[in-house]
Design a protein around this nucleic acid. Sequence first.
DNA 1: ATATTATGTGTAACCGGTTACACAATGAGA
DNA 2: TCTCATTGTGTAACCGGTTACACATAATAT
Lengths: 330, 330
Amino acid sequence: MKQLANIRDVAKEAGVSVASVSRYLNKKGYISEEAKKKVQSAIELLGYKPNLVARSLSTKQTNLIGLIVPDITNPFFPELARAVEDVALSYGYTVILCNSDEEAEKEINYIEMLKQKYVAGFIVATNQLQASHYEDLDIPIVALDRMIHDSIPTVSSNNIEGARLGTSYLLEQNCQNIVFMRGPSGLGPADDRLAGFLEAIEGKDITSHIIECPFNFEHSERIAKKFLTEIEGIDGIFASTDVSAAGALKAAYSLGISVPSNVQIIGFDGIALAGMLTPGLTTVAQDIYKLGAIAMRMLIKKIEDIELDDKVIQVPVELVVRGTTRSELR
Amino acid sequence: MKQLANIRDVAKEAGVSVASVSRYLNKKGYISEEAKKKVQSAIELLGYKPNLVARSLSTKQTNLIGLIVPDITNPFFPELARAVEDVALSYGYTVILCNSDEEAEKEINYIEMLKQKYVAGFIVATNQLQASHYEDLDIPIVALDRMIHDSIPTVSSNNIEGARLGTSYLLEQNCQNIVFMRGPSGLGPADDRLAGFLEAIEGKDITSHIIECPFNFEHSERIAKKFLTEIEGIDGIFASTDVSAAGALKAAYSLGISVPSNVQIIGFDGIALAGMLTPGLTTVAQDIYKLGAIAMRMLIKKIEDIELDDKVIQVPVELVVRGTTRSELR
DNA sequence: ATATTATGTGTAACCGGTTACACAATGAGA
DNA sequence: TCTCATTGTGTAACCGGTTACACATAATAT
């Protein structure tokens, strides 16, 4: 392959100055129709593509977006990442994937490194760091799934409403003795889901058990096995996450407890996994793709310095009824 | 935040030239102990971090790696991506995630764009493009999971051996009438898995049905439902993918066919999903993390121009027995 | 004593863009 | 006719690194 042409080659070929070529490329400043044409054909002739690195050096801007997630291996995040990536691509941005493992240090390292690369912005789906860290950065940021601080635009699902919805459904199904597997305390969505659950059972004549449980299959299975053997008469489980629900389902199965006839289970997230389980998992589904897509669009607005209509966007949530609840009882 | 220091500031502060600072930073060329110390303290004093964009412009090299996968939403790929990302990070590289959707055009667009950014190399887990495309690129490339061409270093699982292993196990479990759900024809791993299956049943007195099926849950479920109703007496299913196996499992369940007592099912991949299903999916497990990690290390060697020991690496595969096969019959 | 080599350092050009600024030319308004 | 705004263009500095090359000095070989 031949040496790539640069802007000076184009200028020479077109018989104009580099400034004119640059103005043409960026549609900025004055340029005559005639010059435009000459530049255009020179570009075509030489197969010229602007060097993005050089441009970045000069403008201190790139079209790189850092997407920070706890762990792409957790099936919630690939769906989110996919949406972010799709939208980014359609606007000419490129996404860099960063797994933080919920460790502040890893996250800081990533942020430092990407800052050195002049990333255009970050989408952060973790909340390890204090808001001040991000504010000091002076780079556009959008929080996804988890609220970091009022000062940072956020897009998340309506978790409280979702938990209320799921709980009400469990009550409709005549569950009287419900375990709520709450996520790690201190984690925004986990807390909100618990709040929604508590609101929904408020004043109802049912027994409830709140049990903390990480968003991880093996732990969830173990914990569910424990409470299913230790607590008498459980007839409903609301897990804060589909993965946890899957753990509970498996635990029930291995204990010979039949789902949904003995225990009904409901999850939260609406990831593809829910539909793959047998029986299919009833779940409060987030619109994950929308979550990611909106976050990316917000970030692009911030990057391009367009005023945001709303700083906080709540995406509605929907109950998807499948086989782990007794829909025939409705 | 104050203006970041650049190399000239450091040089001035240290009382040396920029060349010395640069030599110090890159550990290249001669520099005295004394100068080293002066530069070091100037760097600390100013909190200097080299500007990676400027460096890239000059060296025409970045520490960016493009990772091209069909769709990160397919649960096989996040596990792979995770490994790639971990190893990349540990060597100071950053990975850019690209979903090609198995479309040649998308892939070409990505490659073009990343080339403009001086990416250091690509890990390609798709095979849409002809090898020549990659060769013309003149950028280090490693093929992951799927072989593209002899000329391109490849790391993949031993798919033939894996399929043989799984099939033998099914035979040991007394399956007589087996459906092999093969992946899309023309796809390397899918073809290899079929080959392994055929080899393993060669000469055995059993009935087999080869049915093509994409690597997608919904399609797999539908197809499995069809053959489970249309074909008499199926007692074993070997799916080329855990996701397909999950579809088959769900299909069996919805038809009231019990697994493993009526039909035994075995998958391929060893993704986390397999363990989350009930019953747990017996599967031929790839060492997915290892696959990704080795690919990344190979790529780094290519980038740094270190001779590769082997151009093609086959990672061994392991049978993981869970609940969809009747292990008690052993 | 002299040639040769190894060590150490600085200057300035270069990578390939962007853009401030100077300078024209043209047309409109006073 | 004389401003002055508008449109159009080019030169050269700048972004922040790397590095070829020239030059200097010290150590070793002849």
